[in-house]
Design a protein around this nucleic acid. Structure first.
Lengths: 238, 238
DNA sequence: GCGTGTCCTTGACGCGGGTCAAGAAGGCGA
DNA sequence: TCGCCTTCTTGACCCGCGTCAAGGACACGC
């Protein structure tokens, strides 16, 4: 809240990159940045607690946050991973309700908090921004449906789906097959898929026995991409 | 598409009641209504098929529709029940993607289809409508998070939650306790809770054994509202 | 070489819940 | 009153997956 907060260049750049107001003028974004409260948090810090009134909307400037829900038994489902330029709790803040899920920093994190009112003021100044905002909220909701859909699949299917999508992004062709780096520890992957390491391990075992993949330490070799796609059959958007 | 479609009074009233553009002027709503394609469908008809390009947005004029997802094994999860004045597939249409879930008519249904472009044109004519639209999308997303959350509870908990919420709406105090009409067959209720009649029946049995409710044919008597609320503990928004 | 971490895998077990199949328990027309 | 159909319940069984507990496998330091 000191005057030195007013214009951190990284925060300004982060807000400028935010898709929620992609078409807003630089001037408006700068005004937004001046009202932002910027926080630097260590890995593991709690950003948002489920059930609290959503007064502000966060934009991730650097790092990754994880949106999740803790069940009564302490089990955790991860809904979404939020990275630079994306918003946190936008939904609840705009709906003027309470946060429907919690969020933690998955890495050291810089986040800019904007008051709900400021965002509405931006909309009044530049009505065309509404279209950006609406498109973003809507596609977020679509992504969400996909998560809920995935919860109805069993673990090997969810793993197949993850591997298929990951192979599209970071797969490298090799003589042995398509090499895919997992990009995280298996324990983390298990949590992302809504399961535990033991079960994930068995899912890897199953795909391997079926001849679909070969398992390495921090990567897998995909032998049959088609089978992977079929197993993880979700509905890809156009 | 005939000119007689242009201004069905029920469609006009339904669109006027739609929260998505609550603050729009009557004139704008009438213009919207003139472009709408109105359909009358029998119970059970398929409105939207998962994966199809979302070109239009539906508004329910009369009846109830059910948004659901069919798993590979034919199992069905119901995400949402949409009633008069609410929108169908708004999300996907506004995000210009594909429908992320399917929808069926749960009762005989009248629905008005609006082209995406018409909605965007309305936004340009009346920018203040964006705020309504954003608030609605956002609260929809919050509701959705709650559904996903509920999927991590077991069946008796989901049932308790349903009964608790239903008792708030239609509960009637009687000497024996709080009488709650289910309002649908137990098979339908089972589907809404993402389970099958057999398991629902056992869940009723469990709540009854625990002294929380008494089970009647098409209603239940709630003996211990507190226990119900505790079991179905979700996160109510403010 | 030998501890001592961390991370991953493997087996045994229990529980929730879906499926199958066989009864109850009503409507409802003849 | 008697079928007869639909809806709901009950029991038996199986499967997926989470938990607990016991090993590997590999990296560190000494």
């Amino acid at each position: 809240m000191t005057s030195s907060d007013k214009l951190r260049p990284d925060a300004l750049a982060g807000l400028r990159a935010c898709k929620l107001w992609r078409t807003a003028s630089d001037g408006s974004v700068e005004m937004l940045a001046r009202t932002a409260r910027v926080e630097d948090l260590p890995r593991g810090a709690r950003l948002i607690t489920e059930g609290e009134p959503a007064l502000a909307l966060g934009v991730v400037i650097a790092g990754r946050a994880r949106i999740h829900h803790l069940g009564a038994d302490g089990r955790k489902i991860v809904f979404e991973v939020v990275e630079g330029g994306e918003a946190l709790g936008a939904v609840a803040a705009l709906a003027s309700g309470r946060y429907p899920a919690s969020a933690d920093a998955a890495t050291p994190l810089t986040v800019a908090w904007l008051d709900r009112g400021e965002v509405f003021r931006l909309l009044e100044r530049e009505p065309s921004v509404a279209r950006d905002l609406i498109a973003d909220l809507a596609s977020r909701l679509v992504a969400f449906t996909r998560v809920a859909t995935a919860l109805s699949m069993d673990v090997p299917e969810r793993l197949a789906r993850f591997l298929f999508q990951r192979s599209l992004q970071v797969g490298k062709a090799t003589p042995a097959g398509l090499l895919v780096e997992l990009g995280m520890s298996k324990a983390e992957l298990a949590a992302s898929l809504g399961t535990v390491p033991e079960t994930l391990s068995r899912a890897f075992g199953k795909l391997k026995r079926d001849g679909v993949i070969e398992v390495r330490a921090k990567s897998v070799v995909v032998l049959d991409v088609g089978a992977l796609a079929r197993l993880g059959e979700g509905y890809r958007e156009g």
